[in-house]
Design a protein around this nucleic acid. Structure first.
Length: 703
DNA sequence: GATAGTATC
């Protein structure tokens, strides 16, 4: 049982709880969706698939599951699952709904996200991330415990949402067939071939002794265009639910701006000097841009009369340490106006109160994936109409607001309606591995809501084959493919763990894989660049970044363990955060790495692997890295550039690498990212001759 | 000698 539920157990007769419950009830009843409760229930009863288009503030995410529960959709122990693209949303909405229901969190109402499961056998309304539901489907392909699944925020079209939609469509078909045929022995197969491998037997097991009812599916989207979903679900009915937002005045420029940073600056001061009180939210593309705008604001501010200087800037982006992020949420001192300089983190992930003005330059840094080369890059591109709408909406949450779009209206008309679905702009190896594990072998024929690039599929199939996850017939290899699919990691990392078991360096590899799985372990603000470099030196290894990361992880664990001997757990963790700060380590990233380490260690042990260490034999460990990351091997060229052996691409070592200066002859790397140049990050020195020996499938001599 | 948008298992 989750700890949170037990906390609430003793706290029911609070004196103000009745008043609070009444207030909550009142708020519930005043939500726009409340007026259509009966109709929605009726539609869900009539239609197996329903699309609900609900604008911000309609209350769909919190209310619909409660309506369904009260409407009897959990009879026979069925669970209502509501998926969210983000962890924080799953947790916060579940908390709210538990409160509205007057029950302790983790009982009737709960949530499940990676590393944190607050559900129990009595949970009927379960909020979870879409990625986690995908994982659940590997263990239970018919999702037998769910009577209803609600896919929320479907318009965001994350890769998980897209794969999930395909899967759910297939599960739904199978479950309705099972229900109709009443467990006849006819071969049952969805269009997506879900049962090919999951097997009939597997599907029927959960319904032994009880009939598996058809799966009700509800797709919730904030986009104005429900047609895509409706068409995908064979003309499913779409219902519109009103939202509740304050009006936002949209202002365009007359002419296109040549320099949106400058235009943003001018607009900030125009608002500051001429408009009524209220905070400003500015959307920028990245950390560097945010930091430079911050400096420029301060510069110009100093030139103003002192009475006009009451303006404070707050940066926010994901790699900003949490304690600095939190400052954004504190109200400005009396008489001061806040300017929040944000990346698109403030579009959906983070909601800041007090915003009355939004400045939107109409650009965003977006990931693109070139299937031909396999290179991911981050490019500044124009936003979509949907994104622009989302941004302007941030000004109308607490009262009427204004949004300054730094481009002409004619430009807006040229924007795409919505952002390209993620599945069309990323590497597909992981998705393919998951689908294969579900018994779906024909990836190109899978009924995706939007088909991924065919070349991207071929490329991923090929690398999965070279990693030994797939057979020559492109089936999941036994046991390596199955083992890799079980681990919640990128395929190459899973492979590294499986090999590390054979090389007897699992202890080290578990740490490396956890550290590589998180974003930016090191945080170096520009003004402390030298200091951070000195700090890093204590950990650095001449063999490369992998061993450096290993040293950092071990040093941090050692520090924490020692601290725990003389301090309470809380105090020790606080000291660790201090240690992180002194060593320019992002403590949030480090904790994330620890979480991942704990989780994959458990999975690895469950798979029957024994965790052994290679001690000081780093040669052995580097050989294991070479055997796993052979697809990312590169060789130094006479001009100092590196040539990636598997693709022939010419790349450079990123200056943040420990090996930037030493430039070894042959290396493996973790990631290739294109910015101004093609840079490889996180490298380890290897011996060129290891490649044909350890990865003959890729570097074998041809006869 | 340069930066890393946002998520997730």
């Amino acid at each position: 049982m989750p700890s949170m539920a037990s906390n609430n157990y003793h706290s029911q007769p609070k004196p103000d709880s009745f008043a609070r419950r009444q207030k909550l009830e009142q708020q519930r009843k005043s939500l726009p969706i409340a007026s259509v409760e009966k109709r929605l229930l009726e539609e869900v009863r009539k239609n197996d698939t329903l699309i609900i288009v609900g604008e911000t503030g309609s209350g769909k995410t919190t209310q619909l599951p409660q309506y369904l529960l009260n409407g009897g959709f959990c009879r026979d122990g069925g669970v209502i699952g509501i998926t969210q693209p983000r962890r924080v949303a799953a947790v916060s909405v579940a908390k709210r709904v538990a409160e509205e229901c007057g029950v302790p969190l983790g009982q009737k109402v709960g949530y499940a996200i990676r590393f944190d499961d607050a559900t129990s056998s009595s949970t009927r309304i379960k909020y979870l991330t879409d990625g986690l539901l995908l994982r659940e489907s590997l263990l239970d392909p018919s999702l037998s415990k769910y009577s209803v699944i609600i896919v929320d925020e479907a318009h965001e079209r994350t890769i998980h949402t897209d794969v999930l939609l395909g899967l759910l469509k297939s599960v739904q078909k199978i479950r309705s067939q099972v229900a109709n045929k009443l467990m006849s022995n006819d071969s049952i197969k969805g269009k997506n071939g879900l049962l090919l491998k999951a097997g009939h037997g597997d599907l029927l097991k959960p319904c032994h002794g009880r009939k598996l009812p058809p799966l009700k599916l509800i797709i919730m989207s904030a986009s104005l265009d429900a047609r895509v979903f409706s068409e995908y679900f064979s003309g499913a009915k779409a219902v519109h639910v009103q939202g509740r937002q304050y009006p936002v005045d949209i202002l365009y420029t007359l002419q296109p701006e040549t320099d949106y940073v400058d235009a943003a600056l001018i607009t900030i001061f125009q608002i500051h000097l001429e408009e009524s009180p209220g905070d400003i939210l500015v959307f920028l593309t990245g950390q560097e841009e945010i930091e430079s705008v911050e400096r420029l604001v301060h510069e110009r501010l100093r030139q103003l009369p002192e009475a006009n200087q009451k303006l404070l800037t707050f940066p926010i982006f994901s790699s900003l340490p949490s304690e600095k992020q939190l400052k954004v949420f504190m109200p400005a001192p009396a008489g001061f106006r806040k300017v929040i300089l944000a990346t698109n983190i403030a579009e959906t992930s983070v909601t800041i109160s007090g915003i009355k003005y939004v400045i939107d330059p109409g650009v965003v840094k977006a990931r693109t994936y070139d299937a031909d080369t396999g290179i991911e890059s981050l490019d500044i591109v124009k936003t979509s109409k949907a994104q622009a709408l989302q941004r302007s909406g941030r000004a109308g949450r607490e009262g009427p607001g204004k949004c300054y779009r730094l481009y002409p209206e004619s430009e807006f008309e040229k924007f795409e309606n919505s952002t390209t679905p993620e599945i069309k702009r990323c590497d597909l190896s992981n998705v393919i591995l998951q689908l294969k594990a579900l018994g779906i072998d024909d990836i190109a024929g899978f009924d995706f809501i939007e088909k991924p690039n065919r070349i991207a599929i071929v490329r991923s199939l090929e690398s999965l084959f070279l990693l030994g996850a797939l057979t020559e017939e492109s089936k999941l290899a036994d046991p390596v493919g199955h083992q890799m699919a079980r681990l919640p990691l990128e395929p190459m990392y899973s492979k590294a763990l499986i090999l590390a078991n054979q090389f007897n360096c699992l202890e080290e590899m578990l740490i490396i894989v956890a550290m590589l799985s998180v974003e930016s372990i090191f945080y170096a603000p520009r003004d402390k660049l030298e200091e951070s470099r000195t700090a890093l030196k204590c950990f650095s290894s001449p063999e490369g970044d992998h061993l450096t990361l290993l040293n950092v992880y071990r040093a941090s664990t050692e520090f924490l363990e020692k601290n725990k001997l003389t301090n309470s757990k809380e105090k020790a963790e606080k000291n660790l955060r201090k240690w992180c700060k002194e060593n320019f380590v992002n403590s949030r990233s480090l904790r994330h790495a620890q979480d991942i380490h704990r989780q994959i260690k458990k999975s690895i042990e469950q798979m029957g692997f024994r965790i052994t260490s290679c001690g000081d034999d780093m040669l052995l460990f580097r050989r294991c890295l070479a055997a796993s990351f052979f697809l990312n091997a590169a060789l130094k060229q006479p001009d100092g550039l590196y040539r990636i052996l598997s693709s022939g691409l010419m790349v450079q070592i990123h200056p943040s690498s420990i090996l930037f200066r030493s430039k070894p002859e042959c290396i493996i790397f973790d990631k290739l990212v294109r910015t101004n140049n093609s840079y490889i990050r996180n490298l380890c020195r290897i011996d060129y001759l290891w490649l044909p020996e350890l990865a003959p499938q890729c570097y074998g001599f041809q006869e």
